[in-house]
Nucleic acid binder design. Structure first.
Lengths: 337, 337
DNA sequence: CTTGGCACTCGGGAACACCGAGTGCCAGAC
DNA sequence: GTCTGGCACTCGGTGTTCCCGAGTGCCAAG
């Protein structure tokens, strides 16, 4: 039985605990929020909430602290995403507008998010498999080597050096380049393997070995980048917050691309604002932390995700507002470029 | 007056303090190292060393701790760089050998160094101004836009999107590309501005506005990257070590490209192994840390620097050995590619 | 110059008492 | 039935005191 007042009490507990970082007691609650009832009544409610697992006592005779389950209820039913102030929105806009290329967009985004939320920001590079080929370039470096550059419509550039078995002159390179571009231009990266499967047969016999070498490198570069690149910033913000779990574990997780990847990405719905609270998180070592993430991408299609990581005890409405806003602005920027 | 025995005492103090992280007293010294004299004698020596500023007492009636000046003397005169073990060398080699491009080399290097030294590793991307142009590519994106790509001999790729005022067809792009490459191929980046200064005049009048736009972007991309890119890894290693100064300051410094840059780069001699100890370091907030850095680069020429940052109380011989070894191997890898 | 002896210092840990915020429970009021 | 004031109880955190021992400086003798 969870009536309205109990929910109000839970909300008050979460809010107070988030702002003070100290277990909150019945008396303080009655004073700071006008719930219209006495501390004793609140105590009764708290006893019920505790029994149901929404709050807990660090030890007897201390105030209550929200549990992960309590935060979850708070996020789901008791709070609203808090929109940013006008000044903040303008700051985001002007800060992101100055970006010169994709790297720059990502770097600015992650810093912005870290600064805005005063927490650790994490940004995944746009997933290559959702992008399309905009151009393929072959650049001869010397007789036996050429550099292969793949440019996608998200502005991403993949480069590889290809070692060739035989000498190849500029004309043949130009021809290969033309064939490749004709074949791949505008084609989704996911379908590249299909498109190039029969390509060698359509070339003069002499060019086939070279083409095969290049294609293998091309395909490899696609697979390779399946381990998506992820960057983070704002680690300094961890220093202030004291984690129940060691700071070391958190820092280690942050440097593990794979872990970060799954933190952001392991969700079915890319577009929604997802919140993962404390133990909902699959990784030990990140038990005391929550993740707020959102998808972003150009043209309505979600390409990748970004988010922040902070202590479970975070201001969810504000954090969610910041993440959502940044995701939207980045999407705009990407769509425009 | 610093006789040999006093130096031996200082060395013993540094070694013991580094390994135990506790102020070291005269008795312990006499036991652990066979200096052939009694604790009382050592006390006298210690009193002299303290007076000269090489060691200090955290408080009366505690052991001695090396000062920055003491570490400096130790590094300069009392220790030798410790070579890596064969196993470590092989590990480095095989780990770096798998790199596919410049980004990958840098990323692997920084991780390797962090793991090897158990400290924070910092790697600067090869300085573009020491590189040469290998190829310039212009890729039409649509009628009003083209992507400009600059490839250097260090494998670095700079890309910019150029917005044009007028429609430009493929033939004119091809022509421009040819002219640009003819003019710039093999030319050092530093001399690019000179080389292109009179280029517009050598083109047909109709192409001049377009060329000017492209060139301005080109020049800007050179200047822009003067704020060199720097990456770090191993922040988790900071969690263990307790700094006299706050961990937060260190993390903040690490995320400030400019600060890192100067930490690594502010030295005249690129090739030497440089060590900056505690307060020798210009930045408050990094007082309790030391930096060990070395230059690296392909073909005997130093292109950039790499190093590690750790508590002043670090094992200098081992750290220096690791930094030197990694710098050498990276140079080899770069030279080969 | 080195050494053993000796008195002195002082940080850090253990033991202890105390305070007060906070709780649970109960009887009475609305 | 629900709320409220009262009351006894708990217990973490803080401040105090005390003591120990590592370490020192100094001095006189070898």
């Amino acid at each position: 039985m969870v009536d309205d007042r109990k929910l109000a009490v839970l909300r008050a507990i979460v809010e107070d605990y988030v702002s003070t970082n100290e277990p909150v007691g019945s008396k303080a609650l009655a004073e700071r929020h006008n719930l219209g009832v006495s501390p004793a009544t609140i105590r009764n409610d708290m006893a019920v909430l505790e029994e149901q697992g929404y709050i807990a006592q660090p030890h007897t005779s201390a105030g209550r602290v929200p549990t992960d389950k309590g935060y979850r209820l708070f996020v789901d039913r008791l709070s609203q995403v808090k929109p940013l102030s006008g000044a903040e929105r303008r700051a985001i806009e002007s800060f992101l507008a100055g970006a010169v290329d994709l790297d720059d967009v990502v770097m600015r985004t992650v810093r912005l998010l870290a600064q805005l939320t005063r927490q650790v920001a994490v940004v995944q590079y746009p997933t290559i498999s959702n992008s399309k080929v905009r151009h393929v370039e072959l650049v001869p470096l010397n007789e036996h080597r050429l550099m292969f550059v793949l440019i996608t419509n998200t502005g991403r550039v993949e480069q590889r050096v290809v070692e060739l078995q035989e000498v190849i002159d500029d004309n043949r390179v130009a021809h290969l380049r033309a064939v490749l571009n004709a074949c791949l231009d505008g084609c989704g990266l996911a379908s590249v393997p299909d498109m190039v499967a029969d390509l060698p047969e359509r070339l003069p016999a002499e060019d086939r070995p070279v083409a095969a070498t290049i294609l293998s490198v091309l395909l490899e570069s696609l697979v390779d980048r399946h381990d998506e690149k992820i960057v983070f910033a704002g680690a300094a913000n961890l220093a202030g917050a004291d984690f129940t779990v060691g700071l070391r574990d958190v820092l280690e997780a942050l440097e593990e691309q794979v872990v970060l990847m799954r933190l952001l990405g392991e969700t079915s719905d890319l577009s929604a604002l997802t919140v993962r609270i404390g133990s909902e998180n699959p990784y030990t070592g990140l038990q005391g932390t929550s993740i707020v993430a959102a998808g972003y991408g150009s043209g309505g299609k979600q390409l990748a995700r970004l988010g922040v990581l902070g202590p479970t005890r975070m201001d969810y409405p504000v954090t969610m507002g910041a993440v959502r806003a940044v995701a939207r602005y980045v999407s705009q920027i990407l769509a425009a470029s």
